[in-house]
Write a protein that binds this DNA or RNA. Structure first.
Ligand code: FES
Ligand code: FES
Lengths: 158, 158
DNA sequence: ACATATCGGACACGATTTGTCCTATATCGG
DNA sequence: CCGATATAGGACAAATCGTGTCCGATATGT
């Protein structure tokens, strides 16, 4: 029950592209270095993102990637599902022949609700909102998330 | 981003045990047959569930499984996490050394919120609630979930 | 034309998932 | 106590998936 690395990379990549909108095409190599993504692997992910219509790709010299839409029009859900596939949580929700219990089963109905709730939340968050939140909290340690709890920013200047 | 088969099996197994509370120990073979679970595999899942304190196991002749607590005291979240591990969604939430972005990153904060929302929902649903919902909707086709949408119960008597 | 940079398929490798098999061990009933 | 029953628990197997690299082909800017 976790996001794959590919999905994580996709989000990071898109987030970087959303950082300064007017910039145009950004080289894959730059994105990969700044965002700590294996460059070749990012290529694969980018192809998927391009097929989903989230980024545009320019080949050849001075090539690279750019957002295909504005950062406000791309939701986290779109990014994740483009790369990892549609979120279903429970197999019984789309693998219709997998289970005999369907006519009587309350379980997948619960998963259906959970799924909707999760997708609604991710769908409601745009890249623009992420960028805005990052800049708003820049330099502050986030107290609500376990990752930064109790840390300081000493020596984290990089 | 999906529940594993093991998790699905665990839910089915516990749900079956919750169906009639006063029954005592139920043979693994029976559970496996009724719920369409490979019997040996169910054994593995059951051991995990037992370690988590969700079921009790009786070995030997007339052995089998039974709920270790009442159906109202076991939540879907407990079942799923016992088998599939704690739900994290994003690696950055628990793999603290995986990512350099942590001090500035808004992404994992969003995942943190999504995670809490999902776990809260699953944690709020008990086996008893599931059983009640199943009996309440017995014989009716569920319109809200994709699995049964547009179907009828004709020929689904089994 | 040449240098640059992505495409896209093939491939490698480890981890995870999903099972099965087999022997040991525990329990019940007589 | 004996024998039948039924799970424990480790080993093992196969398939799938996730993650990443390599390389020739292709597209683009100068
Ligand atoms: S339809 Fe398969 S568990 Fe509900
Ligand atoms: S901390 Fe890794 S992406 Fe946010």
């Amino acid at each position: 029950m976790r996001l794959t690395r590919s999905g994580d990379y996709a989000v990071r990549c898109l987030l970087y592209l959303a950082l300064d909108p007017g910039r145009g095409v950004v080289a894959r190599k730059e994105i990969a270095e700044v965002m700590n993504i294996p460059a070749q692997y990012l290529g694969k992910v980018a192809q998927t993102l391009a097929k989903a219509g989230l980024i545009g790709i320019r080949q050849g010299a001075r090539g690279g990637y750019e957002l295909a839409r504005t950062a406000g029009e791309i939701s986290l859900l779109q990014v994740v599902e483009a790369v990892d596939g549609e979120i279903f949580l429970n197999d019984c929700l789309h693998q219709l022949d997998i289970c005999e219990r369907r006519p009587v089963c309350a379980v997948h109905r619960v998963w259906g609700r959970a799924r909707k709730q999760l997708r609604d939340m991710l769908g409601g968050i745009s890249l623009a909102a992420l960028v805005e939140e990052e800049s708003r909290t820049a330099g502050k340690v986030c107290g609500e998330c376990p990752a930064t709890r109790g840390q300081t920013l000493e020596g984290k200047g990089e």
